[in-house]
Each structure stands twice: as C-alpha cells, then as structure tokens.
C-alpha cells in the first residue's frame, strides 16, 4: 500500500512538474486536441442524428398522393383502398391542408391571405399506407397511372437524399478529423518533446542514478493522457452546449422543425457513449503522442 502511495505521489509530482515546464505549450496542445475531438464528436453526433432520422423515415410506409385540382379525395378513396398492398387510406382535404399551412406560417389574417391568392391553391391529398416498404415503389407506380392523381411523393426519395447527404458529410468529416488528429498528435508530441528537452538534466540524472526506463517515461505518458483528457472534456462541453443551443433555436410549433428538434435529442445510450468515446479518443491521442515524443528521447 505504501509502495503504491509512493508511486502515485511520485507520478503526480513529476507530471505536475512537467506541466509547469510546459507553460503555454500545454494550452496549445490541449486546444488542438479539443478542436480535433470537437469535430469528431460533432460528426459522430450528426451521424447518429441522421441515422435516427433515416430510421424514422424507414418506419413510415406512407405515400402522399396529390390529386388533380377539383378532384375530391372522397371520390377516389374507395378505388385506392381496393389495391391489395394498401393497408390504410386517409383523406386530407385541401381546406384542412390550407388551414394547417396558414397556422404553420403564422399568418395573422387567413381570410386576407386566401383572398390575395384568389382562393385556396392547394389540392386534396390521400395519405396511403402500404403493408410493406418493398411494395411502396409498385404501389406508387399504380397510383400515378390513375387519371385523378397528379403526382405522388413517398419517403424513399427523401431517404435517398438524406443518405447521400450523410455519405458526403462522412467523407468531409473523416478527412477533416484525420488532418486535425495528425495535427493534434504533432502538437502534443512537440510539446512533450520540448518539456523533455527542458528537463533533460533531470532525465539524465534519473538515468544515471538508476531510475528504470518505465519510471522515467510514465510521467510523460501521464502528461500526454492528461492533455488528451482535458481536450476530451472541453470538446464534450462545446458539443453539449452547441446541441442545447440548436435545440432551443429550432424549438418551434412548425411541425417539420419540431420533428427535427426531436431527432436532435440523443438516446440515453448515445448520451453515455459520447463522453466515453471523446475521453478515450483524447486519451488515445495523448498516448500516441507520448510514445512518439519519448521515442525521440535517447534512453538506454
């Protein structure tokens, strides 16, 4: 027990001594790790949010069928309901849709707006739910052939766009994170190397009086890990603050934005994973940097 306490005391003292020698270089190291982990965390969080969004879309088997002007939904509903792959059909009348749009746009005087547009410009819509996602494309094809139907919108299109967006974002963030991680490792390595150079007398004496290699390098490894952990904590604070601010900014009564805001919320598992990933990422960067810095030290 005493031996462990002695070792801990030594490690703390030597690590602190190294940090004191580092001065402003410590901040340079921590800030680059922070920026790198911030971008990494942000892209990871965005990827989780897009996944949630896609999963949400995937669960929707609903097709929006917009009818020709002057065609009533009630006239077509039985015909559509008769299709074998259709589970449910619901009519959204153009009046209902118009009221909803005016409400979402916060139009103060709905009558005036209707008058300005010379009446309700919308058409009746059918919300058609299919039995299975696989049947959706065929069903859309059949619905489009109906003379009463103007056009159909279904979620696969949006999903494809989201997937393309996610793939694009992944590549951009991966490239950025790689460059920044290398920069962070280079800065931390240089910082630790400069600290080692500033302490070369102590290191030389340690070697000459019989300190083992592990005993000499452990304080440097602790320093590197501390830089990484500090960067991880700071990036986590930044990411959490940014997420909260965006959620507050997007909080609105508009249905789509409200839906987006809901998707910004991480699950409890993701909330626990994010700090763990950031801290281990920081620790990893610190560890690699310490190894690289110490490899340049000639310890026999």
């Amino acid at each position: 027990m005493l031996q462990i306490l002695t070792k801990l005391r030594y490690l703390c003292r030597e690590t602190l001594s190294g940090l004191q020698r580092g001065g402003w270089m410590n901040w340079a190291a921590i800030s680059t790790v922070t920026v790198s982990l911030f971008l990494f965390g942000l892209s990871l969080q965005t990827s989780w949010q897009l996944d949630a969004l896609l999963a949400h879309f995937g669960s929707q088997l609903e097709i929006s069928v917009y009818l020709q002007p002057d065609i009533s939904g009630q006239d077509v509903i039985d015909q559509v309901q008769a299709f074998p792959t259709v589970q449910e059909v619901r009519v959204v009348s153009k009046e209902e849709a118009w009221q909803s749009l005016l409400y979402e746009l916060r139009v103060a005087d709905p009558d005036y707006a209707t008058q300005q547009l010379e009446g309700n410009p919308l058409v009746d819509e059918l919300k058609v739910t299919a039995y299975s996602p696989q049947s959706v494309p065929n069903l859309v094809e059949r619905l489009t052939t109906l003379p009463q139907v103007d056009y159909c919108v279904y979620i696969n299109e949006a999903r494809e766009q989201f997937e393309q967006l996610q793939a694009g974002l992944s590549w951009v963030s991966l490239s950025l994170i790689s460059i920044l991680s290398i920069t962070a490792i280079a800065v931390v390595t240089t910082t630790l190397h400069l600290i080692a150079v500033a302490r070369r007398n102590e290191l030389e004496i340690m070697q000459l009086v019989g300190a083992t290699k592990v005993w000499i390098i452990i304080p440097f490894i602790c320093q590197g890990i501390l830089f990484g952990l500090a960067g991880g904590i700071l990036s986590l604070i930044l990411i959490t603050t940014l997420r909260t601010l965006i959620a507050q900014f997007l909080f609105t009564e508009q249905e789509f934005l409200r839906f987006l805001t809901e998707q910004l919320t991480l699950t409890s598992l993701q909330m626990s994973l994010l700090p763990l990933i950031l801290l281990s990422g920081g620790g990893g960067i610190g560890l690699i940097s310490s190894y690289l810095a110490l490899r340049r030290l000639a310890l026999r």
């Binding site: 306490l5 002695t6 005391r9 007398n201 102590e202 009086v209 300190a211």
Partner: peptide
C-alpha cells in the same frame, strides 16, 4: 548537474524518488 528549480533537499531526495524508494 544539480536541478536548478529544486532545493538542496529535493535535489538529494530526487535520487531516491527516481529509484522508487518510500517516502519514509
């Protein structure tokens, strides 16, 4: 080869610390 930012006692004790000796 003394360490300038450590006192006399710390310089001497440093050897024993570097060897992992107990504080006592």
């Amino acid at each position: 080869k003394l360490i300038p930012n450590r006192t006399v006692a710390e310089n001497v004790a440093f050897v024993l610390q570097a060897q992992g000796r107990r504080q006592q």
